[in-house]
Simulated assay, not measured.
Amino acid sequence: MSVSRCGWVKLSDPVYVAYHDEEWGKPLHDDRALFELFCLETQSAGLSWLTILKKREGYREAFEQFDIDTVAMYGEADIVRILESGLVVKSRPKIEAIIANAKGFREIRQEFGSLDHFFWSKVGGKPIINDVDDYRSASCHSDISDALTKELKKRGFKFVGSTTLYAFMEACGMIDDHENGCHCKSR
Rank of each mutant, 00 (worst) to 15 (best):
Y166W: 14
W120S: 01
I99Q: 02
V71I: 15
K122P: 00
E57G: 01
F119V: 00
K153L: 08
M73C: 08
D133Y: 06
F105I: 09
I95H: 06
D116N: 15
L148F: 05
I108C: 00
T70H: 02
V88Y: 02
Q110Y: 05
R155M: 09
I99Y: 06
D146P: 07
K90C: 07
D133F: 07
E96C: 03
G173H: 12
A171G: 08
R155H: 03
P93V: 04
E64F: 09
D78F: 13
D143S: 13
S142G: 07
R56D: 03
S162Q: 14
Y74E: 05
K94D: 05
E76L: 04
Q65M: 12
E96T: 09
N101E: 05
D131L: 11
K122T: 07
F119T: 10
G124Q: 10
V160L: 04
G124C: 07
L50D: 00
D176P: 10
D116I: 03
E107P: 02
A72F: 06
H178R: 14
E64L: 12
I128F: 04
A147E: 15
I129K: 13
I82A: 00
Y74N: 07
K103L: 02
T51F: 11
D146L: 14
Q65A: 06
K103G: 01
R81P: 05
E57W: 02
D134C: 07
E111M: 04
W120V: 08
F63M: 07
I98R: 05
Q110I: 04
R92G: 04
G161I: 10
F112V: 10
